[in-house]
């Protein structure tokens, strides 16, 4: 099995997201691995454990710090690491997917795994765009993939705990919602060790695509309401909440 796992380096939503002009101020935010990519990495590692083969981790290096994520991927079971050196913090999904498709096509993968979505997918997710550019089927919101004899049996989730099972002939692109097992832990010592010896292949961006979206404005939502905030120490907050619940017959 020749599995490609795509990593997306995105602005962290854990902190404030300052805006400059019509975009996020990319210079003053932390970038992190898209949380769903942890799941697709795990799914790739599970398939490799079951069937053998190689896992190639690839991503667009939007701010010059992708090496850290690639080292993490190697520590979690990837065999090969590739970065597309773009240095373009605002590269949208279309542009990234086009570059990735040009890099991935010659790899002739059996399976391309992508996190099902990312919080900055304003122009759509990498997975379906990649599938369109590579002329492969796409199936997303996937929660398990088992491969046998050139066919994958996979579960896709719908709302409310419902889902469906599909069989898909390889190759295809899958958007992973969750792996069958929680993502494995990679000790920092192992990542550091890998960082010293790992060889990361570097590619130049090739191909052109554009979201076709002109950004007029990016701003925090205008809110119609806001919670009544309870101030004070944790004990004071707790006392106020318990009183509130008792008043309403909820405690």
């Amino acid at each position: 099995m020749n599995i490609v796992v795509v990593l997306k380096h995105i602005p962290s939503v854990a902190d404030e997201l300052p805006v400059r002009g019509n975009q996020v101020d990319f210079d003053s935010v932390d970038f992190v691995l898209n949380e769903w990519d942890e799941q697709s990495l795990e799914q790739a590692a599970l398939i490799k454990e079951a069937l053998g083969g190689t896992v190639t981790a690839i991503g667009v290096d939007v701010i010059g710090e992708l090496d850290n994520l690639l080292h993490l991927a190697l520590a979690k079971g990837a065999d090969r690491a590739v970065k597309i050196a773009a240095d373009d913090a605002g590269a949208d999904s279309h542009r990234q997917a086009k570059w990735l498709s040009e890099a991935i096509r010659p790899m002739a993968p059996d399976l391309v795994l992508v996190g099902v979505q990312a919080s900055n997918d304003i122009d759509g997710q990498l997975g379906p765009l990649l599938a369109a550019y590579l002329d492969l089927p796409y199936i997303g919101v996937v929660s398990s993939i088992e491969v046998q004899d050139g066919t994958a049996l996979m579960n896709k989730e719908f709302a409310g705990g419902f889902g469906a099972r599909y069989s898909v002939r390889l190759p295809f692109v899958a958007g992973v919602q969750v792996a069958p097992k929680p993502p494995r832990y990679a000790p920092v010592s192992k990542i550091r060790q890998i960082a010293q010896t790992a060889k990361i292949e570097v590619l130049e961006p090739s191909g052109e695509a554009d979201s076709g979206l002109v950004f007029r404005k990016v701003a925090p939502p205008v809110v119609s309401g806001h919670a009544e905030m309870i101030e004070g120490s944790p004990k004071e907050i707790a006392a106020r909440l318990v009183a509130l619940l008792k008043e309403r017959g909820l405690a």
């Binding site: 996020v24 304003i122 990016v218």
Partner: peptide, 16 residues
Amino acid sequence: CQAYNGKLIAEVEPQG
């Protein structure tokens, strides 16, 4: 578009 986990709203004009 309600991007970045709802922290920002992006107003976009699609071309074409």
